[in-house]
Design a protein around this nucleic acid. Structure first.
Lengths: 185, 185
DNA sequence: GGCCACATGTAAGCCGTTACATGATTTA
DNA sequence: TAAATCATGTAACGGCTTACATGTGGCC
């Protein structure tokens, strides 16, 4: 089974919302999908060039100010078809690696406090993330453009996951404390 | 910042529990960490050889039956130190990509039913996964070896996450149905 | 003047999966 | 006798990150 480059679709997808430059896409991804999809420079620019060559996108404008250029791209009908073809295909399930859980799994090798620290740090980050979600929610406001609704759904997903993890953190910390006490006796 | 090969630590970690062959490790990973850490053949065998050369593990036994050989490895004190060094280091937070959410995010590009189908399929898989967790729980039973407790914690994590996602699936499906009805009027 | 954001790109190189190669043993 | 499991390995290749390279414009 050939692996497909999903970056293509992330780029096409963003351009399906509105014409943008590579830099714009990067920023937009950071704003909206930061917790489930990121792209790096090393991917964005080369693949954008590829898409242009394949006529999946067209160069809408090249704005120049001095030696500073800005290339704005627009999705073409061919690109839109390709995007749709991918969107209707079944999601290929993949198991992401979780380093925290791997360290936890081998927790018996190190002192209990190490695991405790990892969980506390995770908890801290989760709380920060919840704040970000709240800000996004406010930004989304009551507008209901067709794609803001779908955005909202992904944010809701993130919130649920984070809250579940926060719950787990509490339980795990409690359990560790209990073990700690039973050992010190 | 150099990227470090975490497969090393997954292998060392498994060997810290007990001596095993590459094939054993693969099976053990599948049994215990399948939902947050997997390794493929193409990684396991070469890295096992590397670890042996660096004396982080030793070859405990080479059992042969005909032309079928089985190499059992044991972690060395050097390997154990390396494992511990990694375990105490802070977890580097990484955002895993989520293809389901990406397709959802671009949901406005395709008919509503497509998104519905993706979520239903996800729901189906989550339910299957819950069953697996229950089986693992039964297998873990009441034994309390030092590392089974940590295993339990990772299983608990998985269960929480899955349940949160199942809740989200219901909400999302309800929302989609509402939109569907308001459109058909 | 210095820092940050804007803006586009290239190159190196690891990481990891997939497919290939090989063959024995057990089980239905 | 066919299929599944046991068992170890290699090769190809793509994906992706990181670091490098370069320069402008605005703000404090």
């Amino acid at each position: 089974m050939k692996r497909i480059n999903k970056t293509r679709y992330a780029l096409l997808g963003m351009l399906s919302h509105q014409p943008m430059s590579g830099y714009d896409i990067k920023k937009a991804l950071h704003m909206s999908t930061q917790y489930f999809w990121q792209e790096s420079d090393g991917q964005i620019y080369p693949i954008l060039a590829e898409l242009l060559k394949e006529k999946c996108i067209t160069s809408l404008a090249i704005e120049s100010q001095g030696s500073r250029t800005r290339k704005v791209y627009q999705i073409s009908s061919k690109g839109l078809e390709e995007l749709k073809d991918w969107l209707v295909q079944e999601v290929v399930p993949t198991i992401p690696r979780n380093e925290l859980l791997l360290k936890l799994f081998f927790g018996s090798v190190v002192p209990l406090e190490i695991t405790q620290k990892h969980i506390l740090e995770h908890q801290r980050q989760l709380k920060k993330r919840l704040e970000t979600y709240k800000k996004i929610d406010q930004g989304l406001g009551d507008e209901k453009s067709p794609y803001q609704l779908y955005w909202q759904m992904t944010v809701e997903f993130g919130k649920q996951i984070v809250q579940a993890q926060l719950g787990w953190c509490q339980d795990a910390l409690k359990l560790l404390k209990k073990i700690e006490q039973s050992k010190s006796q």
